[in-house]
C-alpha cells in the first residue's frame, strides 16, 4: 500500500509540474477597432499560446462581422449593410447569411415589440447620429417626421438570400442587434476552438461561459449617476447586457441627448437611466435591453417572460425595479 501511495503522489507531482510548465492562467486582451466600442476578452487557458490563438481568431471574427454590419463605411469586395442601404432600392442585393439572418431577426423583434425595436428605422437614427457627431444642435420636428415616414419593415424584402427595399429613403441600422449577434457568433467560434471559461464584453454586451476557478463571473452594473457600482450579478453560461443613457450621448443647451431613440416621440427615450437584461441567448439579451428601454415595465415584463430573461430597470427618478428572478443573481 505504501508503494501505491508513492505512485499516486508522484502522479500528482508530475501533474503539477507539467501544468506549471504550460503556465495556465487568466489572460486578457482589449480590442478598440470593432463595433465602435471597446471589447474585452478574458479567458482561463492552458497556456499563453492557446489564448493568443483564440484571441486572434476571435478578433478576426469580430472584425468580419463589424464590417458586415457597418452602415457608415463600405469595404472592397464585401456586401455589407452600408452597401445594401445605398443600393437595395435600385436592385435586389445578394447578401450572406450573416446579413439575411440578422434582418430576419430584426423583423421578428420588430413584430414582438410592437414596432418599438425597429432596425429598419435607420433614417431616423441617422438624423440623430448626424447631430450627435456635430454636437451643435437638435433636429427639427420636420426633419424627424420626414425620416419617420421610411421605417416600415414591410418595405424590406428578404428572399432567396437577396435583400431589396421598396423605398429609396429607408435605411437599416442594426445597432441594437449587431453586438448581440456578434457575441452569439463569437461564442460559437470559441466553443469550436475549445475555449470554455471566458468572458467577452463587446461594449456593454457581456457573454460569460463556464466559470472562474474561484466561482462565477461577476458583472458589475454601473450606477447611472457615476457613483460606482449599482449592483453586481454572479453569472455563468449566459449574457448580461446594459443599455444606458450614459453610454452614448451629447449635450446641447444644457440638455442631454442619448442614443436610444423612441420612435413614438422620435426623441431619446426618457423613462429610464439604464436597463440591464440577463438572458442565455446573446442576441435576445442585446435586443431586449434596448426594447425594454422603450416600453413600460409591465410591457417589458411580458416580453421578458417570452424569452425567459430577467431585467433590472433603473428609472429616470433613480428608482430600481427588478423582474421576479433578477435578485437571484445579485
Amino acid at each position: 500500500m505504501k508503494r501505491s501511495a508513492c505512485v499516486i503522489l508522484s502522479i500528482i507531482t508530475v501533474f503539477i509540474f507539467t501544468a506549471c510548465a504550460k503556465t495556465p492562467g487568466r489572460y486578457s486582451i482589449t480590442f478598440t477597432d470593432v463595433f465602435d466600442t471597446v471589447t474585452d476578452f478574458i479567458a482561463y487557458c492552458g497556456s499563453e499560446d492557446e489564448f493568443n490563438k483564440a484571441a486572434e481568431a476571435l478578433h478576426g471574427e469580430l472584425l468580419r462581422l463589424h464590417r458586415l454590419y457597418d452602415i457608415y463605411n463600405e469595404y472592397d469586395g464585401i456586401v455589407n449593410l452600408a452597401y445594401i442601404n445605398r443600393t437595395a432600392s435600385a436592385a435586389p442585393v445578394a447578401a450572406t447569411d450573416e446579413i439575411t439572418s440578422i434582418l430576419q431577426a430584426g423583423k421578428d423583434f420588430c413584430r414582438d415589440t410592437g414596432g418599438r425595436l425597429n432596425v429598419f428605422a435607420g433614417a431616423v437614427f441617422s438624423v440623430w447620429h448626424g447631430y450627435r457627431e456635430a454636437g451643435t444642435g437638435v433636429p427639427s420636428d420636420n426633419e424627424l417626421e420626414e425620416a419617420a415616414a421610411h421605417v416600415s419593415p414591410e418595405l424590406v424584402h428578404i428572399s432567396g438570400g437577396a435583400v431589396s427595399f421598396t423605398d429609396g429613403n429607408l435605411k437599416i441600422d442594426v445597432g441594437a442587434l449587431a453586438k448581440g449577434e456578434a457575441s452569439r457568433r463569437a461564442a460559437l467560434l470559441l466553443g469550436k476552438i475549445g475555449i470554455k471559461d471566458y468572458m467577452l464584453n463587446i461594449g456593454g454586451n457581456v457573454t460569460v461561459s463556464g466559470r472562474k476557478p474561484e466561482g462565477l463571473w461577476k458583472v458589475g452594473v454601473q450606477d447611472p449617476d457615476g457613483e460606482g457600482l449599482f449592483t453586481k450579478v454572479s453569472v455563468s453560461d449566459t449574457s448580461v447586457v446594459t443599455s444606458g443613457d450614459y453610454q452614448r450621448f451629447y449635450e446641447y443647451n444644457g440638455r442631454k441627448y442619448h442614443h436610444i431613440i423612441d420612435l413614438q416621440t422620435l426623441y431619446p427615450a426618457d423613462g429610464y437611466r439604464s436597463v440591464t437584461v440577463i438572458c442565455e441567448n446573446q442576441q435576445a439579451a442585446d435586443a431586449l435591453s434596448t426594447a425594454l428601454f422603450l416600453m413600460s415595465v409591465e410591457e417589458g415584463t411580458e416580453l421578458l417572460k417570452r424569452y425567459g430573461a430577467e431585467a433590472l430597470w433603473i428609472k429616470a427618478d433613480g428608482q430600481a425595479v427588478r423582474s421576479e428572478g433578477f435578485s437571484r443573481y445579485e
Binding site: 482589449t30 478598440t32 457581456v206 458583472v219 458589475g220 454601473q222 457600482l229 446594459t242 440591464t276
Partner: peptide, 17 residues
C-alpha cells in the same frame, strides 16, 4: 487615438457595464 483610461481597483467585478 486607441486610448483607454481605466480605473483599477478592487470592486469584486470582472467587468463593469
Amino acid at each position: 487615438n486607441r486610448v483607454i483610461l481605466q480605473i483599477k481597483g478592487d470592486n469584486g467585478a470582472d467587468v463593469v457595464i
